[in-house]
Amino acid sequence: MAGSDTMSSENPPWYETDERGEILVLEVPKRLKSHPEIVRRGLQLEPVLPFKIGIVYLTSHLQPPQYVVKVLDTSTEEREIYERLWQAPSPHNHTIPGEITPPDAGHPILITPYLTDCSLTCVLKPNPSDTLGLFVQLLEGIEYMHTLRIAHMDLCPDNIVITSHLAEQPRPDLIPNRVYIIDYGSSRQLALGPGSQPAITIGPSQVYLVHPPGDLKHFDPYSWDIYCASHTMRQLFDVCFF
């Protein structure tokens, strides 16, 4: 039987534990289920396994179309970056559309459409021209962020999604066959643009999937994005054709 919500602070991860204090990874924490916006929308949530436990959830597959529900960490710039990018319409903007719950509705929650992982897209459509098209869109989105002096800092296949296989469009502003960039939890708004910004320290969570060359720990953040993008494209290319 479930015990109680536990968390180190107001910020995620939020966990449900049993009477021994062990985390119940298949349980949605009561605090999230009772969040005013989750209740108001009547959303039934499911955990996302094995990653992002206590942070990211999906709405039930029995309530299509599905959405991603993420408990935001207010110690990061994620909320400000999403809102800033949403307010900067451009054909080069590849930020996934969505919304963040209003300030008077409790802890901020991000709600975005649940889209297809780009790795799956490569498996289903192993066509060189399609794959190159994905890469062009990804680089276009990164370049656009950089013009706004935003560095993503965590580009990887898991943070690149696409609308190509949606049976039902959950939002009218989604563009078919478009690559979208997600997860700005590690992202930074910078004082200077590409070519002028000094190096910053890359955190341990940011090198978990992408090992920096020469074991370097300090990078121009814009260059780090490009390095991670090239690593991501190589992974997707390998999934498609090898």
Rank of each mutant, 00 (worst) to 15 (best):
L139T: 08
D215N: 14
L166F: 04
D104C: 00
Q137C: 04
C156K: 15
T201E: 15
T163Y: 04
G106L: 02
Y67I: 04
P36T: 02
L174A: 07
D173S: 12
H165Q: 13
S4A: 13
C118P: 01
A88H: 09
E27V: 08
F242C: 12
L138P: 00
W224A: 02
T76H: 05
T147R: 15
P64C: 08
E99R: 10
Y144G: 05
G42P: 03
F135G: 09
S164E: 13
E37F: 01
P126C: 03
P157T: 11
P198F: 00
A167R: 11
I160Y: 00
T201W: 05
P91I: 07
T17S: 11
P65K: 12
Q87E: 14
K125A: 11
I226C: 00
M233W: 02
Q197H: 07
H231P: 03
T163V: 11
P176I: 07
A105V: 03
Y57D: 01
Y227L: 15
D238Q: 15
Y114D: 07
S196D: 07
L174C: 10
L190A: 03
I53Q: 08
D130K: 12
R40Y: 03
H165Y: 14
L134D: 11
K30V: 15
L138V: 08
L216P: 02
K217Y: 04
T76Q: 04
P91Y: 05
Y208V: 10
L139P: 00
R20G: 09
C240R: 15
Y184F: 15
G21E: 01
M7F: 07
S129D: 14
A199D: 15
S223T: 10
P50T: 12
V39C: 04
T112M: 11
I160K: 02
I162E: 02
D18K: 11
N177T: 06
L120F: 11
Y144C: 07
R20A: 14
I150Y: 00
P176R: 14
L124P: 01
F135T: 08
S164F: 01
L24W: 01
N159D: 00
E99M: 10
N93T: 08
D5Q: 05
V123R: 14
L58Q: 09
E37T: 13
L58C: 07
T95W: 03
